[in-house]
Design a binder for these strands. Structure first.
Lengths: 195, 195
DNA sequence: ATACGATTTTAACTTAGGTTAAAATTTTAC
DNA sequence: GTAAAATTTTAACCTAAGTTAAAATCGTAT
């Protein structure tokens, strides 16, 4: 299966796009390679692209202005979209940096081309709505994880539900995503391993 | 100004609905009165109504099954919508209880009537999109408040940005919303008053 | 005005994460 | 294979929130 086939398959799963629906869009998808540390979108930039990850892992993060500490807000991995939702959906300047955590390869499509597709086809319009719903669902799940779960539970959830992320990035990115410091994650890992 | 005028005005602000646009909907809005403790929507119910609050304050909360402790997830106040976003947008069973914290009065419209309006008018379709965006923006703001802010900062933000809520509900609802226990909020308040 | 219930604060103690720096381990480059 | 760099763990101490129960305060109804 080629990478484009995988993309077509994922979009079929996501929004029930048939091969024909997908074919309308093929000329709009472009491939891009990232080296670890390259940016998908910079802080303060309006994000104009929706990415689909072939290989690699990305994060959105904020640099706290008092401490210069980086805090990871969202992680994105293989066969998923990479996009800072709020900036892309509202077409507003992005609060985050969005960066490759590993070498990576994506397909991307511009907001302009997406809007063309929305106009041309009801199925693509539906895709747009489902994108927004997906962004909302990811966000509310993360919000609820902070309200209802302990850092230890968030850690166990990440291992269970996103092993592809867990296995491919350093633990300091994980601890930042979980909302705790490095030493705290070490203590949690120790606590778990002693059970 | 009548209550319906206030609703019309709020919708104009929110989605640029003209008096004509609004008039299309007047027969769909119904008034309902709540006593403190009454439910707008129950846990496990698919929420089929969008409310607009004339007077009073509502909350969405979860009862933790191990401790029976209630945790407030969203608060809603005067001249705003009351709706458990996720359940309403996805038309899925609700994870929360949504309840009046004070006596209250709302106008509500059903999802069926809203869908009719979406079909009839581009402006109302736009309203639907803006609703979903609003839900997303409220949710990501709350998510970010947990990632970037201390409980003390969240408390000060609430006083500053939602004085109508702060001034009308008991502190134990506030502490729950902030993600801390009652005694912790008392300590924070003491700390602040000593400055 | 008073008594009851509801709400908030306080106290005493526990727990878990924050902070800083050093040590240990792992990875990478040559 | 070894040195250097990057990552993770550990240690020691600090801080803030959790927990539980009691005390204080506030509101309300009679």
């Amino acid at each position: 299966m080629t990478e484009l086939d995988i993309l077509a398959f994922a979009l079929k799963q996501f929004a029930d796009l048939t091969p024909n629906d997908f074919n309308m869009s093929t000329s709009f998808w472009h491939k891009k390679e990232y080296k670890k540390g390259d940016f998908f979108n910079q802080h303060k930039n309006v994000c104009r692209y929706l990415g689909f990850i072939n290989t690699g892992t990305f994060r959105s993060f904020v640099i706290e202005n008092n401490t210069a500490e980086e805090k990871n807000v969202f992680l994105y991995s293989k066969n998923q979209f990479v996009v800072p939702f709020k900036s892309f959906i509202n077409q507003t300047p992005c609060d985050y940096h969005t960066q490759a955590m590993t070498d990576a390869s994506i397909y991307y499509i511009s907001i302009d081309d997406l809007l063309l597709l929305y106009k041309q086809s009801h199925k693509w319009e539906r895709f747009g709505r489902l994108m927004a719903q997906m962004a909302f669902n990811v966000t509310i799940e993360r919000m609820e994880s902070f309200i209802f779960k302990t850092p230890e539970e968030r850690y166990l959830d990440l291992i269970k539900n996103h092993p592809d992320i867990f296995n491919n990035i350093p633990l300091y990115h994980i601890s930042s995503y979980l909302g705790i410091q490095g030493p705290s994650l070490s203590r949690i890992r120790k606590r778990i391993s002693e059970k």
